[in-house]
């Protein structure tokens, strides 16, 4: 489904070339639950941004469902981000001036997909599932971290993505709340057959994943 071949991401720092990730060869299959594990600064976030089509590699190719993403236009890439991927960030990245419901509906505004249910119906059924239905008209900064992360997951799911990319989803949460979020992601993988890619520096978070990829200094050291 997603295939990275000889992928490099290099930056020029003070005239010296610095590779955030180097020579990544990785194949992610449909329905997998993968953890990308590595200490901070290891390049795991850069790798996630590359997989999530937020960034372009300086060398190598990334193929999504057989398509070379370097050949896609901005609107094609944006559409893939919109319909193929769902992001969950450590910082939640909700827009605070929009209500919970508006935040969740935001991806549908940019979507061209047709669903049998209206965006609002889908949003409410997901909110019900994650127990945040009564928060629909609240603003994100009035919610607890766990609630905010569930709003973010709902937003990630609204367009029925094939992949959920979670970048340290428990990083800003206490252990108990973090556990609940991880359980939720596991469920999505098991019951909804959504591919989950979990980026973390904590080994006990990565335990949930069936496949672990360890990254250090921008290179995959163990997979």
């Amino acid at each position: 489904m997603i295939k990275l071949s000889n992928v490099f991401k290099e930056y020029k720092l003070d005239g010296e070339i610095f590779a955030a990730v180097k020579n990544i060869n990785l194949s992610i299959n449909k329905g997998e639950f993968i953890a990308i594990l590595g200490p901070s600064g290891s390049g795991k976030s850069t790798l996630m941004h590359l997989i999530g089509l937020l960034d372009n590699p300086t060398r190598g190719t990334i193929c999504v469902e057989g398509k070379d993403v370097s050949k896609l236009s901005d609107s094609q890439l944006s559409l893939l981000r919109n319909e193929f991927v769902g992001f969950v960030f450590q910082q939640f990245n909700l827009i605070n001036k929009l209500t919970v419901l508006e935040n969740i509906l935001l991806p549908t505004i940019y979507s061209k997909q047709k669903f049998s249910a209206s965006p609002e119906e889908r949003a409410f059924s997901l909110m019900e599932r994650f127990g945040i239905k009564e928060k629909a008209t609240s603003y994100p900064n009035k919610l607890s971290g766990g609630q905010q992360q569930r709003v973010a997951i709902t937003r990630a799911l609204i367009n029925n993505p094939k992949v959920i990319l979670a970048d340290e989803p428990t990083g800003n949460l206490d252990t108990k709340t973090g556990d609940k979020i991880l359980t939720l992601l596991t469920e999505l993988n098991r019951e909804d057959k959504i591919t989950v890619i979990l980026v973390t520096h904590e080994a006990d978070v990565a335990v949930r994943a069936k496949r672990k990829i360890q990254i250090r200094d921008g290179e995959i050291v163990k997979s």
Partner: peptide, 16 residues
């Protein structure tokens, strides 16, 4: 800027 980044991540095109 942050809001623009979030919108781009969830699928807004440059044109949007």
């Amino acid at each position: 800027i942050k809001e623009i980044g979030i919108r781009r991540a969830i699928g807004a095109t440059r044109k949007d």
